[in-house]
């Protein structure tokens, strides 16, 4: 999608994941999702909670297996990675940052151990102690300075932002190609968010790491993303360059999201209030567009048929029969 000549690091082809709930009903967490992540690219997966973002992350990390479709890393199907050494090799190249920095660090391990242990597992250093200079360099890189002050700190001695920096250092420790960041700033103070996002950008610049940045916050997606994918109820509904998607959203759901972002330019204008009724799961899980029950421009067709992708711009595509730029629906 971007003008990279390299093959994509990771691709999902028509991936679906269905869970069985206790009562025998099926929950379609992810439906027919296709996406690629190219080297050095920051792809943002945007959606509300329950849209299947985290399941997508788990599918990529291999902790869930797809019900249908193929997740492949550099052309190799993840489902066929079975041996211990092959799994280790995959872990070495694809890492993850978790949402909650209070839960993702073991409270009994020092910062040095937490960051050094993955290096040791993957034989990048002979031992944690003998890799100390590399660990210190990494701590400095994620902004924990002076690094020697932090090396022996335990998580409870750190703030949320510092913990998340440690978690990022741990993910970067093995020099991965791709890091899946599952809402890495949503639990942090607003004042700390920009710093963490800046770190992600720096990691891309200096180490060439690609990111899948999962968020429900369009503003941060615009800030760091090259591309934005919008997800709703397990389906992707719009995809395109970050600026373009935010400036000219075509899918009614994306438009609702963009309008929900506080915007000083629209101050004073009456806000269109989007009511989200508590929807019965089964109602939206038909064969049609999942956004149909809420959509202001829905037609009878939308209820039965899921629209195919249509390009609205070069690289900007949308899955909607009635897609049109925002201004056309904006009645105010």
């Amino acid at each position: 999608m971007t003008e990279s000549h390299d093959a994509p690091i990771l691709s999902l082809e028509h991936v679906s994941k269905t869970f069985h709930s206790g009562k025998g009903t099926l929950i379609h967490a992810v439906r027919d999702v296709s996406l690629v992540i190219n080297p050095r690219e920051i792809v943002c997966l945007v959606g509300e909670s329950g849209s299947g973002k985290s399941t997508t992350a788990n599918l990529i990390m291999g902790t869930e297996t797809p019900t249908q479709g193929v997740v492949s890393y550099r052309g190799q199907n993840l489902a066929q990675i079975r041996t211990r050494s092959a799994i280790l090799d995959y872990r070495r190249h694809v890492q993850m940052i978790f949402q909650d920095p209070y839960g993702s660090l073991n409270s009994l391990h020092t910062v040095g151990y937490t960051v050094g242990r993955p290096m040791q597992i993957h034989h990048l250093v002979p031992s944690i102690n003998r890799g100390a200079d590399q660990i210190l360099r990494l701590l400095r890189q994620v902004g924990l300075t002076p690094p020697s002050e932090y090396y022996y700190k335990l998580p409870y001695q750190l703030s949320g932002g510092q913990r998340q920096r440690v978690a990022i250092a741990r993910a970067l420790a093995v020099q991965p190609d791709l890091v899946v960041a599952d809402e890495p700033v949503s639990m942090l103070d607003v004042s700390l968010r920009a710093g963490i996002l800046q770190l992600i950008l720096e990691a891309r610049e200096s180490a060439g790491v690609a990111f899948l940045y999962i968020t429900h916050d369009l503003a941060s997606a615009r800030y760091i993303g090259d591309r934005i994918l919008v997800m709703y109820k397990g389906r992707l509904c719009e995809e395109g360059p970050a600026e373009e998607v935010i400036a000219h959203p075509h899918h009614p759901y994306t438009q609702a999201l963009v309008e929900a972002v506080p915007n000083p330019e629209r101050m004073g204008q009456p806000e269109e209030i989007i009511v989200t009724p508590d929807l019965n799961e089964t109602k939206v899980l038909g064969s049609g567009c999942p956004y149909y029950p809420l959509c202001p421009v829905a037609t009878a067709q939308c209820q039965d048929t899921m629209p195919e992708w249509t390009f609205v711009q070069d690289q900007h595509q949308v899955r909607c029969f009635n897609a049109a730029p925002l201004s056309m629906h904006h009645t105010s």
């Binding site: 902790t63 872990r91 978790f98 839960g103 993702s104 660090l105």
Partner: peptide, 22 residues
Amino acid sequence: SRDFVRAARLSGEGTWGVVRRE
């Protein structure tokens, strides 16, 4: 089911390593 155990597993720690170290 805690995140730090998942994180250890995702960084390549084996079953015995997760039990013993985490």
